[in-house]
Nucleic acid binder design. Structure first.
Lengths: 205, 205
DNA sequence: GTCTATAAGAAGATAGAC
DNA sequence: GTCTATCTTCTTATAGAC
């Protein structure tokens, strides 16, 4: 199989657990099953490997974002789909988002790597903020805004609604990244969060 | 002034920005204004410096927690104080907590250091979860529970209320740690969050 | 307690054979 | 493309003078 690609995969795994500075090229090589000098036939330096991971990640983000509907582009048309959204559907949507972020191998490793490196590089800081704060919030704000206009939800500030919906998801994600054994407990709390959110903002009552 | 203490301060500053593995003892020494070998008269190794920081931090946490009322111990008696809590008081309480966490030099550096090192050491992961997740949530849950019983707030699941109250605070904190220039914007959003929280859960309506 | 000098070893990267 | 051997530099830590 493609060695050049495997180097990126193994490097990402190591970087996401130890951080760039604590990973040695010999470790990456060992994980791939070759010796360190052979790496330099594929990448010209350790930093070059890191940059390649970053490039690959940026490319894959748009794909992922449109798949998960968090890019902020399609919120209006998505709101059409969710016109008849109920509590159960909202729970499914939130747990789906949560479990995708948590379990998708590439998403998790990339998020951990950015978390570890965020204070050393402002580009990485911006990337993490965009992907895990601004983009989800702006998408959900636009969607909630539509759902309020359509009379599906009560009329509240949609930015704050998005924050109330998403911040607990993000919060529980950071807990589970640190302590994976708390996934079940966290998923339960997430569901209670969404049901209460639905009761508060829904027109059912 | 006490060199031994200054070493800890400078080391914490560097560790919180670059991470343990990317900081060299010579850098710590330079920040203190001495040469690297002199450090070894105060601490027997680089790891020893790190451990000393951790020890100091654990000691100071109880003090800080009781000061901020997030230790979970005093929630019931605190609820007495907040019996007549209004929207403005809730806003003051939340922004106070947020700005303390954000600006307190020691709290910020320690949080950043734990964030950077969390996946390399499960003890650090537990510490971060305790101080920035479990303790605040359990305190606030206990307090909201009391306020519901007293009829100050509507009766909802207090765990979820605490999550709705605190998760946005934590979320905005992580954004501002990465991008300090967004503090004003984030503080504004925080206030809107608390006002909406108060309207939702309060009995005013 | 601080310094200079230096040991001991680790880590990134290159040279050149196969 | 992978290997062994090696270079160079960096980094932690110690020795011993002041």
């Amino acid at each position: 199989m493609n060695t050049k690609k495997r180097i990126l995969d193994e490097a990402l795994t190591l970087f996401s657990e130890k951080g760039y500075g604590n990973v040695y090229v010999a470790q990456i090589a060992e994980a791939v099953g070759i010796k360190a000098p052979s790496l330099y036939k594929h990448y010209k330096s350790k930093q070059d490997i890191f940059n390649a991971i970053l490039d690959e990640m940026k490319k894959s983000y748009d794909k992922q974002a449109s798949m998960l509907n968090i890019s902020g582009e399609d919120a209006v048309s998505d709101a059409e789909v969710y016109s008849d959204i109920g509590e159960d559907e909202l729970v499914r949507m939130a747990t789906g988002l949560f479990l995708y972020f948590l379990h998708d191998d590439y998403a998790q490793k990339f998020r951990k790597m950015l978390t570890i490196e965020q204070f050393r590089d402002s580009e990485l800081a911006h990337l993490l903020t965009k992907e895990y704060a601004d983009d989800p919030l702006s998408y959900q704000s636009a969607m909630f805004s539509m759902l309020c206009k359509k009379g599906v939800l009560r009329k509240y500030d949609p930015d704050v609604m998005a924050l109330h919906f998403y911040a607990p998801i993000y919060f529980l994600l950071t807990v589970c990244d640190r302590e994976p054994q708390r996934e079940t407990e966290s998923t339960e709390l997430l569901k209670r969060h969404i049901r209460q959110f639905s009761r508060i903002y829904g027109k059912g009552e």
